[in-house]
Design a protein around this nucleic acid. Structure first.
Length: 432
DNA sequence: AACCACCGCAACCGCGCCCCG
DNA sequence: GCGGGGCGCGGTTGCGGTGGT
C-alpha cells in the first residue's frame, strides 16, 4: 500500500515554470495569500500544477527578497559552521541567511562549497572502491548489501571529514594528522581557521582530550580513561560562545593532560565537544534559532555513537569473508596508497609519506586493541589509519574497519558516482 | 564541428511529522 | 486514541550550459 498521491499526477504539469504561471501564482499569493492550503491553491488560480510544486516555486523563486547566487564569504562561513554543527538541516541553516532558501544553500553546498572546503578526491582508486562497495552483489555474487545500508548518514561523515580537514589545517602537528608541512590552503579555509582560532582565544577555550596522553597518563589504564571521557560527555558543562555563534564545550579541566598537550584532538573537535548552533542573535548576524529547531538536532557524537553501537555490534563478518566480497577490503590490507581521502596536494603528500610519530601509532594500536574503547573513538582511529596506510595495526579490528571503509567510500564518491550513474549520457564510467 | 563528461540549478519525489476532526 | 490530509524537509533527478578533446 503506497502513499496516496497529493494530486492527480496525470493532470498536472511538470517541469520548468513558464513566466505566465509564475505571474499567476505570484499575483494570487500577493493578493490573497496561500490560504493555508497549498493543495487547493492551484485549482483556485487555474494552474495545472501540483500544490507542492506551487509551494516550492513560491518559496524558492517567487517569494520577495530572494537572493540567488553570489554567496559572500560571510555566508560561506555561516553555512560551513552550521553544517559542521547540525549537518544538512538546510532549512535551519537557511533561516540564518536572510534571502537564501534551503534549496539554494543545499545546491550551493553540494556543488561548490563542499568542494572548496574539502577539496576533491582522487578519482581512480576511490571510484573503484566505491563501485565495489556499491555493487557487491553484482561484482561478487553476494546478495547482502547490509553494510552499505547501515552506513552513517552522509552528512554526518561529511561533517566529520570537514571538521578533520579544518582541524588538520589549523593544527598540523596533532596526533591524528600527518606531520607534513602546512599546506597551501584555500582563502576560505584560512578565514575559517582564523575564526576558530580567534574564538578559542577570546573564549578561553580549553583543550579537551579524547584519548589519554601516553606520557601524562601512563599510570592510568585505558579503561579508566574511557570511563572518564564518557562521564565527561555526560556532564552539563558550561558552554563557551565563539565568534560564529557556536557553543564550544570548554570543560574537562579535570581530565586534561597535565602537560597541556593535545593527544587527540582539541576542543574544536566534533568528536570531543558538543558544538551546537547558538540560540542568540547577537553573534555575527545569526538570527535566533528556536528551541524547537534545536531540539531535534542531535550532536555529532550521538550520531556516531548511535551508528556504531547499533550497527557495528549486530554483524561481525569474518575478515576472509569480507575480503572475498569487497575489493576495498583487500586494498586496505594490500596497499598503503589506496586510501586517499583528500586530494589536495597536502593530502596526497600525507598519505604517501606515512610517517607517523611513534606515539600516535602506539595510541592507534591501543585503540584498536582495547575492546572497551568507545565506538566513536574507534572510528576516529580507523580513519586515521586509513590516511596513513600500512595495514598492520588495522588487523586488530575487523568489523568496524570494514564498515568504516565502506561508508567512507560511499561518501567520498557519492556525488560523482551518483551523477554519472544517473545520467544516461554519462553511463557508469566508474564501474569495474 | 561533433562528441563527451562534468557542472550547476531548478524542480520533483517520498517520507516523517503535525494538526485536526 | 486514531487516522487521514497537508506541510516541510532532505535527497534525488532532469536538463541546459560549458569546457575539453
Amino acid at each position: 500500500m503506497g502513499r496516496a498521491p497529493c494530486c492527480d499526477k496525470a493532470n498536472v504539469k511538470k517541469g520548468p515554470w513558464s513566466p505566465e504561471e509564475d505571474a499567476k501564482l505570484k499575483a494570487y499569493i500577493e493578493n490573497y495569500g496561500t490560504g493555508g492550503n497549498w493543495i487547493a491553491l492551484p485549482q483556485k488560480i487555474g494552474l495545472k500544477r501540483c500544490g507542492k510544486s506551487c509551494r516550492l516555486r513560491w518559496l524558492n523563486y517567487l517569494r520577495p527578497n530572494i537572493k540567488h547566487g553570489g554567496f559572500s564569504e560571510e555566508e560561506d562561513n555561516i553555512i560551513c559552521s552550521l553544517y559542521i554543527s547540525i549537518g544538512s538541516r538546510w532549512s535551519i541553516i537557511a533561516a540564518q541567511l536572510p534571502g537564501r532558501t534551503d534549496n539554494d544553500i543545499k545546491n550551493y553546498w553540494n556543488t561548490k562549497l563542499k568542494k572548496k572546503l574539502l577539496g576533491r578526491r582522487k578519482e581512480s582508486n576511490s571510484n573503484r572502491l566505491w563501485c565495489s562497495s556499491q555493487y557487491p552483489s553484482e561484482a561478487n555474487g553476494a546478495s547482502d548489501n547490509k553494510y552499505f545500508s547501515q552506513g552513517l548518514r552522509t552528512s554526518t561523515l561529511e561533517r566529520l571529514q570537514l571538521h578533520m580537514k579544518l582541524q588538520s589545517l589549523q593544527n598540523p602537528f596533532s596526533s591524528y594528522n600527518n606531520p607534513a608541512p602546512r599546506p597551501k590552503i584555500h582563502p576560505l579555509q584560512e578565514k575559517m581557521i582564523q575564526n576558530i582560532q580567534a574564538s578559542k582565544g577570546s573564549s578561553n577555550l580549553r583543550v579537551q582530550p579524547l584519548l589519554p596522553n601516553p606520557q601524562a597518563e601512563n599510570e592510568q589504564s585505558a579503561d579508566d580513561f574511557y570511563d572518564q571521557a564518557s562521564l565527561a560527555q555526560r556532564q552539563d558543562y558550561p558552554k563557551t560562545i565563539n565568534a560564529k555563534g557556536l557553543e564550544l564545550d570548554n570543560s574537562l579541566d579535570e581530565i586534561s593532560p597535565s602537560d597541556g598537550s593535545v593527544p587527540f584532538g582539541t576542543g574544536d573537535n566534533l568528536m570531543d565537544s558538543e558544538i551546537m548552533p547558538k540560540a542568540d542573535s547577537n553573534h555575527h548576524g545569526l538570527a535566533q534559532l528556536t528551541n524547537a529547531a534545536l531540539q531535534p538536532v542531535s550532536n555529532f557524537q550521538a550520531e556516531l555513537d548511535e551508528f556504531l553501537n547499533n550497527k557495528t555490534t549486530g554483524y561481525a563478518p569474518q575478515e576472509d569473508q569480507m575480503a572475498d566480497q569487497f575489493d576495498c577490503f583487500k586494498e586496505i590490507n594490500g596497499s598503503k596508497d589506496n586510501l586517499i581521502w583528500w586530494s589536495s596536494e597536502f593530502d596526497a603528500k600525507s598519505s604517501s609519506s606515512n610517517s607517523w610519530d611513534s606515539n600516535s601509532v602506539h595510541l592507534s594500536y591501543g585503540m584498536f586493541q582495547n575492546q572497551k574503547v568507545t565506538e566513536g573513538l574507534w572510528l576516529w582511529g580507523c580513519m586515521k589509519r586509513s590516511w596513513s596506510g600500512s595495514g598492520d595495526v588495522l588487523r586488530a579490528v575487523r568489523k568496524p574497519r570494514i564498515q568504516c571503509s565502506r561508508i567512507t567510500r560511499h561518501h567520498d564518491n557519492l556525488r560523482g558516482a551518483h551523477q554519472e550513474g544517473r545520467d544516461g549520457k554519462d553511463g557508469f564510467v566508474n564501474r569495474i
